[in-house]
Amino acid sequence: MSDRAAPGQRPPALAIRGLAKRFGSKVAVNSIFLDVPAGSFYGLVGPNGAGKTTSLSMATGLLRPDAGQVWVHGVDVWGSPLEAKRLMGLLPDGVRLFDRLTGEQLVTYAGLLRGMDKDTVADRVKDLLATLDLAKDAGTLVVDYSAGMTKKIALASALIHAPRLLVLDEPFESVDPVSAANIKDILNSYVESGGTVIVSSHVMDLVQRMCDHVAVIAGGNVLAAGTVDEVRGGLSLEDKFVELVGGRNQTAGLQWLRTS
């Protein structure tokens, strides 16, 4: 196994080296480099179409990169995918679920697919459904779930095998505040116990409060990366983001939208 991306004793939870992807003539991700330290709570922020989903898909083995390499805890994702995927839990954005299964069946399915034994799966499914406030709807088909419930059941499927690295693409979208707080608690104690979390989000405030590291992506490039304090440099993360990314409209706005 190649270890050249693993500096020091403890390899980073995720090491991205020169990942690139283009769709036709559109460059979605333009050769990015990123180190996600083990045990960090890492935020990935960027405007719509920045390439966050594309980068995370390549880093987790869902989308084959045009160039570049990825290591998860020192394991080459595209070289030994099965081994790397055991270490990762993934909440993808914009993909369907096997939604003709009930919530309980879906999470069980995710566990069994990973080769876990039946009793462990059953115990963890019960815990997860209770913690995510889905126990009452465990027997409802996922197709009949609301958007927030769907997010939560997908999150449960990502957690079932107790991965060392969690990759969550927009985990808080359409989730209610109480469930969001519950999810944050779960993630915080997961990080405290040594796990690593990567979340992509548009909500700067949330990233600033929750994460210890952050990377700003726009147009397929990493504009800034490091601890949250390094990146924001005294400004609020939101202001720093706008400064980095630009694109604020300086015109007078929609004149006709004034009521007086």
């Binding site: 009930t102 309980e104 069946q105 069980t108 399915y109 069994l112 697919l113 990973r114 080769g115 034994d117 039946k118 799966v121 019960k126 459904l129 126990a135 009452k136 709807d137 465990a138 027997g139 409802t140 088909l141 009949d144």
Partner: peptide
Amino acid sequence: GSSRRSAGHMGFFKLFAATP
């Protein structure tokens, strides 16, 4: 939506072996 149903209805998952 259809009425809420709680856990315990594993259907075919009970019939087949608990392997991938």
